[in-house]
């Protein structure tokens, strides 16, 4: 009984070791399985995953309209204060004052790409883009204004 277990142990161990070696041997002989991207060479046709988080952007449509209401949810959600909302007051046709976005300031140099601002946004005004080549010579270039000059909020978002 003891001997049977002993040899069974050896048999099982050999089998499991060979299984492992078979897999690595397969990888060794099949070079097309290699996952490495050679970055500067394949820059032209680089395919990044959809979920890759490079920086925060605010999409604008053809009429230069965005969906940001200036509610500051993203500013509150940001753990390291890399978003600053500067709001202004528009006068509606009825003569009322209405809060609106003036400048959406985004500090890329402070951002950790955690994506909490995107989750916090109630109107899906901002999202993460998958650009990643952010190096510049002057630090000030990293402070970005996300809403384009002259853009305004799309109709029907605030209702």
């Amino acid at each position: 009984m003891f001997l049977k277990e002993y040899f069974l142990d050896i048999y099982k161990a050999t089998k499991s070791l060979l299984t492992g070696m078979k897999l690595t041997g397969y990888y060794f002989t099949h070079h097309k399985e290699i996952l490495t991207e050679e970055y500067p060479e394949n820059r032209k046709n680089l395919q990044l995953a959809e979920r890759f988080r490079g920086e925060v952007i605010m999409p604008h449509d053809a009429n230069n309209e965005h969906t940001c209401t200036g509610c500051s949810s993203c500013e509150i959600a940001c753990p390291n204060g890399s978003i600053k909302i500067i709001s202004k007051f528009d006068i509606t046709p009825e003569g009322k004052k209405k809060k609106a976005i003036d400048q959406h300031i985004y500090h890329l140099e402070l951002c950790t790409m955690c994506g909490l601002c995107v989750e916090a946004c109630p109107t899906d005004a901002i999202k993460m883009a998958n650009t990643f080549e952010h190096s510049v010579f002057n630090r000030n270039h990293l402070i970005k204004r996300l809403n384009k000059p002259g853009s305004k909020i799309r109709e029907g978002i605030e209702e």
């Binding site: 690595t24 990888y27 399985e33 290699i34 996952l35 490495t36 050679e38």
Partner: peptide
């Protein structure tokens, strides 16, 4: 090189 290819990498290149 062997390590890299077995781990689906390229190794020194």
């Amino acid at each position: 090189k062997v390590a890299a290819v077995m781990q689906l990498r390229l190794g020194p290149n």
